[in-house]
Amino acid sequence: MIKSKSLILRTATRFLLPLQLLFSLFLLLRGHNEPGGGFIAGLVAAGAIALYLIAFNVDETRELIRFSPHDLFGVGLFLACIAGIPPLLMGHPYFTALWWRPEFPFFGEVSLSTPLLFDVGVYLTVIGAVLAIVLALAEAED
């Protein structure tokens, strides 16, 4: 593995990582109306963590993400699959989009939907799959 000795990279990464992850969430949530969406957001998040991997090392990266990447894409696939079930229960075909707009204090009206749940599933699957590959390759260096 490339052992980055660069203090600048490490310090910058510490600050960049939260911003990148926030940005990825932003992309995820706005995706339905503006450029973005689960796939792009997942790539951004995975890229952010890959940067962390280059700046630090595999063990620290695993500590950072806490979950095994395999679990991440497992959960992602699961969420994507169950996003089609609520419409099924209401007698619509699988994956018919359902929308729900509850009022929250401070936030006002919030749009929740089964496509959003599905997109979150895509997001987690992309992060998990990319990280699984990257980490596997990085570990194989030794």
Binding site: H32, N33, G37, A80, C81, P115
Partner: peptide
């Protein structure tokens, strides 16, 4: 309910395709 038609295709019109892809 979405203005980004690319994403609407991905997560609404053709959800099953996307599911296959992921």
């Amino acid at each position: 309910h979405g203005r980004n038609v690319v994403n609407v295709i991905l997560v609404d019109y053709r959800t099953l395709d996307t599911l296959g892809e992921i």
